[in-house]
Design a protein around this nucleic acid. Structure first.
Lengths: 110, 110
DNA sequence: CAGTTACGTAAGTCTCCACTAACCTATCGG
DNA sequence: CCGATAGGTTAGTGGAGACTTACGTAACTG
């Protein structure tokens, strides 16, 4: 098992997501956007599929890929944990620290 | 230069961020939370600093680290690009599929 | 049927990076 | 001053993973 960060650590995988963000594309066309071989891209697709970041639709000999936004839920949770909260906390703590730290320091505002 | 995903691809680095999310900690105490050697943690701290994800405060022989939430801005942008938009687009596309027409090139914001 | 297209899989190579061991620097206490 | 503490730096090593070449497998086409 790998984290979503490990999956997105490879720039080409992020680029793939960008390609299929608002339209589905067959594997071959995705591969055409890169300077690496098709098998390499195929392996990237597999990783993205395994992470739940892509949807695959087979039609004949073709396989179409498209972004699966729900796969980014883990990222959302992470950001919520570290951004929303911590910015808030930062303010609160900063204020508290300011008061508690030392009276010598002057605090013009608030 | 490395992407924020590459920085966060290392689980210990994410854990470090979690440790200093709402309180600053000296390097030694951070290192004590892991089963790797202290130099290894020191290197992780350096990477996180370089990515702008940590603040460093020196006091005597100690160095205190704390989360720097602004460093996560890049992640926010990414998510906004891929989640907010694409979920919206998904809905819109689903509704408009019948008519088989795309109304707008891009929907920058909701 | 054979040939081609579209794509995945397998094996092996090579590069990068997380780690350790050893060393260096700066600060505190006596 | 000395030793201890806190922490960073360097060189070298092992393993993970991204890549290529070669092969396998359906599905369409004549």
């Amino acid at each position: 098992m790998s984290t979503i960060f490990q999956v997105l650590a490879e720039p080409r995988r992020v680029e793939i997501l960008r390609l299929v963000r608002d339209r589905e594309l067959p594997a071959g066309e995705i591969a055409r956007h890169f300077d690496v071989t098709r098998p390499a891209v195929s392996q990237h697709l597999r990783v993205l599929l395994g992470a739940g970041l892509l949807d695959e639709r087979r039609d004949g000999q073709r396989r179409f890929y498209r972004l699966r936004p729900e796969g980014l839920q883990e990222l959302r949770s992470f950001l919520h944990e570290f951004w929303d909260d911590s910015l808030e906390r930062l303010k609160v703590v900063a204020e508290a620290t300011e008061r508690r730290k030392r009276a010598a320091k002057k605090r013009p505002r608030r």
